[in-house]
Design a protein around this nucleic acid. Sequence first.
DNA 1: CTCGATCATAAACAATCGTTTATAATCAGG
DNA 2: CCTGATTATAAACGATTGTTTATGATCGAG
Lengths: 229, 229
Amino acid sequence: MKRARKYKDAEERKARLLKTAAGCFARHGYEKAGLREICAKAGANLAAIKYYFTNKRGLYREVLISSHSQMIENEAMPMPVPGQTAAEALRQWVHFFLRAFVFKQTKRPQLALIIAREMIQPTSFLGELVTLFIRPIRDRVLDIVTALTGPELPAELRQILCHNVIGACLHYDHAHLVLERLGFKRPNGPGEVARLADLLADFILGGIRHCVAARAQPCETPRRRQETW
Amino acid sequence: MKRARKYKDAEERKARLLKTAAGCFARHGYEKAGLREICAKAGANLAAIKYYFTNKRGLYREVLISSHSQMIENEAMPMPVPGQTAAEALRQWVHFFLRAFVFKQTKRPQLALIIAREMIQPTSFLGELVTLFIRPIRDRVLDIVTALTGPELPAELRQILCHNVIGACLHYDHAHLVLERLGFKRPNGPGEVARLADLLADFILGGIRHCVAARAQPCETPRRRQETW
DNA sequence: CTCGATCATAAACAATCGTTTATAATCAGG
DNA sequence: CCTGATTATAAACGATTGTTTATGATCGAG
């Protein structure tokens, strides 16, 4: 009655399927990842996917949510600490983000790739991905940015600053193949990742401060582009 | 002898195939774009692709290089102007980049999407794409950054700054679907694009200046992250 | 007109995809 | 052991893919 181990333990096989499926989805994308390849690498049969996940969609869905729980239990996003400067919080966040996404020190490094694909070629699960992964990250960054600029800055500007922050960081993940071809040596090891994170944090902090300064006393440099080209 | 119009003019059909193929490749990606759909929309036969381009790969290749020539003859990247501040040059470049890529005011708006895909899921043409499109852009930004920081800043740091610049801008293209779901209203029309470009230029200028300042007199804010989490 | 090269079209090919069906193997309970 | 539900496996299905073949239409030149 009490769920004794059957056969070769269904849980283990299911987990193995999820893991190798995550790898295949990350490498080839949802469309081109073949169920036969996944099953072969996981040592399972083709019909096992129908049995456990009913569908390819179902398999993909479970990959997403299992990657989510794996991630938050592996390395949670840093939350505000009482006696912390906003600048320190930002620096801390950049370190977290680069470590989790660019230099994928997590147990499921495929998640970042899957999200990157989903951004450009979304499936029907992009909505869930946004609410599960992306919006919490954005909200945290928005808090930090607001702490840096003060709430008197219009919300739209703070939102744009927030996207600038994420964009600058995410570029090192999304474009890493191009960056390598351009001669950029990928940070190797936690030390180099931390160094890049510090440089990025400096860049971002300066950018935010300059934006609020330019907002306070506008037109230090001519804001309107010259139409001479 | 002198290439009189044959049938329905092969050049026109080839051009129409290229155009609709660019759209399909941009919308569905290289793998999932179907030759049958392309031919149906272009009003051509399936075998015409083998005739004109020998392959699906050949078609994709010609889409890339034709998009390139179309782009540079449509809106060229701004080149350095003698009596121009480096800050002005940067602002000018940001305007160009956002207009060409984010708010795709060009004749072939598909190119940005194709490049975005190629970055994450590269085909064997990524190398050509880098030398044709991406490296020239990077080199121009690197020139501007060097003019801003001075050549005494280590080349590696200038390279990183350069990537920060491109990453912040490119994010508004790569992640635009996610940004919309996060409540970001896409800039609509040249005026709003110019406004976003100005804000981005402010952010970037402040970031670069702060990085050279932090390099000159280090440790204004604690650079090392605190390991308390 | 006739011939040969160029271009167009439809049908078929071989491979792969996700999904399903049919059947065999393995367990718990009676 | 026997039964019935659960799990595993292999084979096949129907659809779609890129590619090819075979044939027919259209032109310029002789």
